[in-house]
Amino acid sequence: MTTIFGYPLVVWMGQLLLGLINGSFYAMLSLGLAVIFGLLRVINFAHGALYMLGAFVALLMATHLGINYWFALVLAPLVVAAGGAVVERTMLSRLYKLDPLYGLLFTFGLALLIEGTFRYFFGASGQPYAVPGALAGGMNLGFMFLPIYRGWVIVASLVVCLAVWLLIEKTKLGSYLRASTEDPVLVQSFGVNVPLLLTLTYALGAGLAGLAGVLAAPIYQVSPLMGTNIIIIVFAVVVVGGMGSILGAIVTGYLLGIAEGLTKVIYPEASNIVIFVIMAIVLILRPAGLFGKDA
């Protein structure tokens, strides 16, 4: 049997896959956080709650309305995005002129409110969400067994991240977004409706979190606490990637997921903290983050 550093290849591959899956969620969530932070200068603590909301909307759509996974994959993120737009328009937008701390406190409070509400109605335990029929089962790759749904999550998240990156880097709308990140007042003086752009950006970030939630539903249990568990790691990803860096958030998301997975092979006890160790090292050596601009 092939071994690397004395561990069988199968073990490495298994953990690499697990790392890629986790990394897929880290990337999608930190991407949304980075886009929101870049333009709105708000550290969106509600991001984990929005992710949980996406999973719950999909679950409730399935149980109450009989809407299947594929429709939920489109509808649930739209529902979360619409909710995000309403929150930004009616509440968050009033805080931009104040210290950034207010945005952080507001979104933190919002997260507690959403998660508390779901805990009240659904309890803290998780609820299963069935893997859609077309993606059930797995295939033998020779060196490892790949559950098809997990492969789908990796591909879907790569496509989504690439699409968002292209949207921001290559389109007209993206150029408004990048320019507004630098100087929103000047962009607005050119005649661009920047307040609307801020709302759309928050909705985009929220929708991405919601989409990640739907993708996660069949893998992890759908529980009111699923967002709390992942959000701290996602913040570490954003810090390592560089606050506000789009590419940094995506690449770092996958890399840290993989680092976490591979650590499980060598020293499982360290896998929970390896991301934070990397964060500490990066902060010491490159305080602006791996992809951040030195400021």
């Binding site: 150029s175 990048r178 320019a179 000047l186 050119f190 005649g191």
Partner: peptide, 18 residues
Amino acid sequence: GIFATLSVQENLMLPPKV
């Protein structure tokens, strides 16, 4: 107010036609 993250062409095309 030239934007660093935009190319010259993107800067030029940024303001919408009024």
